[in-house]
Each structure stands twice: as structure tokens, then as C-alpha cells.
């Protein structure tokens, strides 16, 4: 199996789906001539031409609406946001139109659009460019929210998202684009709504997604040295949330820590904790803890930035608390 980057896995997924289905097209800022702000769309303009790889003005609200309108009449747009920070300008189209059309038309109109781009922080991009908005979109009935952590999942999930009949918010990670992994070639679909156990363990469950998967895996390695066997559950899809996998894992380990990049208030982890306490209260041996980004706008200074992020030491400390091993 080929080892490729997350970026190229996404490129492969888009290319394959565009070859398969002429109604699929890509639009966004710098996706064509420039070859993509993060080079996800590299080479696509050459292969598919400007009608299917559409460079847009910097007009997030406008082109998101164009994507939704095209989807309402049967096209399958992939709307790229250069980052999800900019997508705030377009959130009216995503929330008020894409997520609502099926319902308020009584099932007459579908919006099979994918909104994609990098979310969360990278390095020293400061407050306006370092935000994780998945919980905003996951809050909205009518949307699906997908966040792959590995190249293989990036490909499999993006292909599934493009084929999905519902609007899918597909949040990538700038820091993930260069990560490498084995990716099956050709037809490879990862189902939306299914979490993945990235590491099996028995003592505690680390629930994470996107960039925090690697944080959790690193923490798990270090915990193993202490004789603690952590299970790492990668949610992969935030909505619909895979209750089954989460609950099965925590039922086994009896302790859980949710790790996410975003802010804590009403975050993804809050929903995960709700599901756990509601469904398997009696399986819990300790309160479920959360490791999140610091509840502040992202600072520019690199030391402050580092301190704000969820990292392995914070995860390890939380694990020790849920296992009653703190001194």
C-alpha cells in the first residue's frame, strides 16, 4: 500500500470522485491556478478545467451560497474554505440554508455539498486563525461533521462525504497535511458516523478526534511505560456521533478522558461526556475528564500558544486523576 501524505490522500479522494461523477466540482479561493492554498487541489485544474475547479473571489458567504444553490439543483459541490476561520462569514449559508433545506421543504430538496478546509490552530497564527469550530457545526441538525486524523481516513471519509446526500462539514488539520500513512489506492470508503479504535487498551479510554488523536496516542505510549493500558478512540465523525464505539470502550475501561483542540464550553467533549453519563452511568468508576484548549483567544507568543494546547502531559495528568493515581 502506498504511503502518502494526508494532503495527497485528500487530493486523491477529490480526483477520484470527480472522475467518477461529472456533477462533482471543486470551488474556493485559490483552488485552481494557484493549486490550492495548502496544495490539496494540486493538479486538479489541469485535469478538469476551470468549470469544475472554480477559483472564486474572496467572498466566503457568496461562494458558499453558490455551492449550496448548485447543490439544491443537483450538482455536488466541494466548497473549500481556505480555513474554517474564514468560513464564519459563510455560516449563514451552511446553517440557515444547507442544513435546513431538506427539513423546511418537507423532504423535497437535498443539499449534497461538502464544505472542507483546515480547522483549528497551526503554529503562531494568533487569535483569528487558530480556532476549532467543530462543535458549532455539530450543534446543527441537518449537518454532518467529519474530522479525519489519518491519511487513510482522510481519503475514505472525503470520498464518503462527497457521495453523501446531506451537507457535510469536513474539517481537516493544517498540521496534518504533511503527515504520512498508508492509504489504499482506488475505491476506498470510510463510513461516516463510525469511530475507530486507534489503540486498544483496558484501563482508560481516551476519546479524541483530528489532531488530538496523535496527542492521545503519544500519551498512551507514555502511560504504557507506567503500566497503564489506554484505549484510544478516534471519533472521526463528530456528528452523527458513534455512541456505540465510545460506550463499548468506556464500559470496558470504566474511565474516560476526552481530548479536543477546541474550547471547553459546550465543546464536543461535553457532548461525549453527556452520552457516557447518560447511557452507562453505572459503568463509571470516576467522573469523565476533559482536556481541551485553554479558554482564551489564541495568543501569538509560542510559549503561551503551547501552554494553551491539549498535549500529552495534560492527558496523562487527567488519566491519573480518573484512575485515582494522583499523589
Amino acid at each position: 500500500m502506498a504511503v502518502i501524505t494526508y494532503r495527497d490522500a485528500l487530493n486523491q479522494a477529490i480526483r477520484e470522485e470527480m472522475r467518477l461523477d461529472p456533477s462533482v466540482f471543486l470551488m474556493g479561493e485559490e483552488v485552481g491556478v494557484y493549486q490550492g492554498a495548502y496544495k490539496v487541489s494540486r493538479g486538479l485544474l489541469d485535469e478538469f478545467g476551470p468549470m469544475r475547479v472554480v477559483d472564486t473571489p474572496i467572498t466566503e458567504l457568496g461562494f458558499a451560497g453558490v455551492g449550496v444553490g448548485a447543490a439544491m439543483v443537483g450538482l455536488r459541490p466541494i466548497v473549500e474554505f481556505m480555513t474554517w476561520n474564514f468560513a464564519l462569514l459563510a455560516i449563514d449559508q451552511v446553517v440557515n440554508t444547507a442544513a435546513k433545506m431538506r427539513y423546511m421543504s418537507g423532504g423535497q430538496i437535498s443539499v449534497p455539498a461538502v464544505f472542507r478546509g483546515p480547522g483549528g490552530s497551526a503554529l503562531q497564527l494568533a487569535a483569528q486563525h487558530s480556532q476549532a469550530f467543530e462543535s458549532w457545526y455539530a450543534h446543527i441538525p441537518g449537518l454532518k461533521v467529519v474530522m479525519p486524523a489519518t491519511p487513510a481516513d482522510a481519503k475514505g471519509l472525503l470520498k464518503s462525504a462527497i457521495r453523501d446526500e446531506d451537507p457535510v462539514v469536513f474539517i481537516e488539520g493544517e498540521m496534518l497535511y504533511n503527515t504520512k500513512g498508508e492509504v489504499p489506492e482506488g475505491e476506498y470508503l470510510t463510513p461516516i458516523g463510525v469511530a475507530d479504535v486507534k489503540r486498544a487498551g483496558t484501563d482508560v479510554t481516551l476519546i479524541c478526534h483530528s489532531k488530538t488523536v496523535s496527542v492521545a496516542l503519544k500519551a498512551a505510549e507514555q502511560l504504557a511505560a507506567d503500566g497503564i493500558d489506554a484505549e484510544v478512540v478516534d471519533l472521526r465523525t463528530i456528528r452523527p456521533l458513534d455512541h456505540e464505539t465510545v460506550l463499548a470502550s468506556v464500559s470496558k475501561t470504566h474511565r474516560a478522558v476526552v481530548v479536543e483542540e477546541g474550547w471547553s464550553f459546550a465543546g464536543v467533549g461535553a457532548q461525549v461526556v453527556d452520552v457516557i453519563q447518560r447511557e452507562i452511568f453505572d459503568e463509571l468508576d470516576s467522573p469523565v475528564l476533559r482536556v481541551t484548549g485553554a479558554d482564551v483567544p489564541m495568543p501569538y507568543n509560542k510559549h503561551l500558544e503551547k501552554a494553551s494546547k491539549a498535549d500529552p502531559p495534560k492527558v496523562i495528568a487527567a488519566v491519573k486523576r480518573v484512575m485515582y493515581l494522583e499523589s
Partner: peptide
């Protein structure tokens, strides 16, 4: 195709439909 409740929000949709055409 609607009946939209946000002032101005549906104007880009029409552009999108024209794009699809």
C-alpha cells in the same frame, strides 16, 4: 425553491443555480 427567511441569504443561491445551469 423557496421561500427563504434570511434577508439577502438566498441571492447567492440563485447565483449557484445559474452556475449549475
Amino acid at each position: 425553491l423557496g421561500g427563504h427567511g434570511i434577508v439577502g441569504g438566498h441571492i447567492p443561491l440563485t447565483t449557484g443555480m445559474a452556475f449549475a445551469i
